[in-house]
Design a protein around this nucleic acid. Structure first.
Length: 421
RNA sequence: GGAGGGGUGGCCGAGCGGUCAAUGGCAGCAGACUGUAAAUCUGCCGACGAGAGUCUACGUAAGUUCAAAUCUUACCCCCUCCA
């Protein structure tokens, strides 16, 4: 990684300083190229899921930075390529989605991006395109003749991403093998139609990106650039973005802002500073001062991290809810939960409270995966009502009035509110 | 097309007729310790059931057997070598 170097272009300087830069083609030329505002660069997204998740955050913030420095981000949805599936470094062949599923995913993914990028028609406004618009219409023979001839199979099978699939107990289908050709063609198409001269991507996309750069050079005699970012891993080398419930999604519907905030609040000490650089708008000097912090002070930095990234992702309004909720859940001696708005709730009929066991509530509310799971937790003293450990014979007391609220916790971090009605 | 090897729980990987809901590792969850962190130690980790137990699972489908993840057959998929 390049860090100390300074560049002519402000974008490159900041991208490098914040840890977004892994490698690029022709660094000198791209630096020069980016000194002029209004350049266009694109990033392709797979649309296999309904929402983007934390793993997409680096490229998203990279585009955001690109826009901040006066350039125009193009988001390319892989409506066409998703029908094939990128084989790069994946050990399993991707499920192939139908057109309907892709259409649904496409629109919800766009709404995931809106908080991060300003879309519109002005010079540095982002635009979103779908490669199905041209890939679906390709004709095989003309494509082979006009595009395919520029690709050397000898070279393609030399790429690390392909080698991995070719050696282990893996298989690479012919259609998957074509993925990189199509991705290269996307770049070509965007270059011709939209004057797009940079492709962004994760470092695992390097091979695919270079293919596009080469295609454009050979076919148009034009120099365009590739720029990759490092992949987001935790300090222990794991991929970031997984929790008990699955991926950390960026859409409110799939993961509440409260849980989203909690994810960042709980990151490993060793990752905090790195994440501050990547995912907040605090300036580089400010973050630099935090690098030496330890212990409780570093713990507080996590709150800043969680706040900043939540505001960017879910808006300032949801942060207030998150804070109230967190305070209600963690720092609340009086058990007053009126402010804890975003915690899941379970409504219990007053008349029915005698018949419903704690195990039922835990399973029905989704707090535990099954009744057995709930019982195990109870046995292990991991269940609390208003912060008091309870056993599996716990019943909601008879003398509580309608409207009373109890906090039910699994472990120290997962909570729901039981509301009597 | 031929020969051989293989498909086991979220992942890796043992098991190769009963003692197998399936060793072990990773991941995950909880407890202790802490800072809503890490590391460490302890417990849990298919579903249902208060429990005895019942059900569902070892690529898919049939079969042999009192009994199958383990044997047979067909099919599907993957890998390696040959043509």
């Amino acid at each position: 990684m390049v860090s100390r170097m300074t560049y002519k272009s402000s974008f490159l300087n900041e991208a490098a300083a914040r840890g977004f830069f892994y490698q690029s083609t022709n660094l000198k030329a791209i630096d020069e190229f980016l000194t002029v505002a209004g350049r266009r660069g694109y990033l392709g997204f797979d649309i296999t899921a309904k929402s983007l998740h934390v793993g997409h955050l680096i490229p998203i913030f990279l585009l955001r930075l690109f826009q901040k420095h006066g350039h125009r981000p193009i988001v390319l949805a892989g409506g066409g390529t998703t029908k094939i599936g990128d084989p790069s470094f994946k050990d399993k062949t991707r499920p192939i989605l139908t057109d309907e599923e892709i259409a649904v995913n496409l629109s919800s993914i766009k709404s995931c991006l809106v908080p991060f990028l300003k879309f519109g028609d002005r010079k540095s406004d982002a635009i979103m395109l779908n490669n199905a618009d041209w890939l679906d219409k390709l004709e095989y023979i003309p494509f082979l003749r006009d595009i395919g001839k520029y690709f050397s199979v000898n070279r393609m099978i030399g790429f690390e991403s392909v080698k991995a699939k070719l050696t282990a107990n893996n298989s690479l289908s012919f259609s998957e093998f074509n993925y990189m050709v199509l991705q290269a063609y996307d770049f070509y198409e965007l270059c011709v139609k939209k004057d797009c001269c940079i492709q962004f991507g994760g470092q695992d996309q390097w091979g695919n990106i270079v293919c596009g750069v080469e295609l454009i050079r050979k076919k148009l005699g034009r120099e365009v650039f590739g720029f990759t970012n490092p992949l987001l891993t935790t300090s222990s080398g794991q991929k970031m973005g997984k929790t008990a419930k699955g991926a950390v999604w960026l859409s409110k519907e799939m993961l509440s802002p409260y849980e989203f905030w909690q994810y960042w609040r709980n990151v490993d000490d060793a990752d905090v500073i790195k994440l501050m650089y990547l995912f907040t708008d605090l300036n580089v000097e400010e973050i630099k001062k935090m690098e030496s912090l330890e212990g409780q002070e570093l713990n507080d930095v996590k709150k800043i991290l969680a706040d900043e990234i939540t505001v960017i992702t879910h808006g300032r309004d949801s942060l207030a809810d998150v804070h109230n909720t967190a305070a209600g859940m963690f720092e609340n001696a009086e058990n007053d939960f009126s402010s804890a708005m975003t915690v899941p709730k379970y409504y219990l009929k007053r008349s029915n409270s005698k018949n419903i066991s704690i195990v039922d509530i835990m399973a029905e509310s989704g707090l535990c995966a099954s009744r057995g799971d709930a019982k195990r937790l109870l046995r292990g003293n991991g269940v609390y009502i208003n912060d008091e450990t309870v056993a599996d014979d716990y019943k909601v007391p008879d003398d509580l009035p309608v409207g009373a609220t109890l906090k039910l916790s699994c472990g120290k971090k997962k909570h729901i509110l039981i509301i009597l009605e």
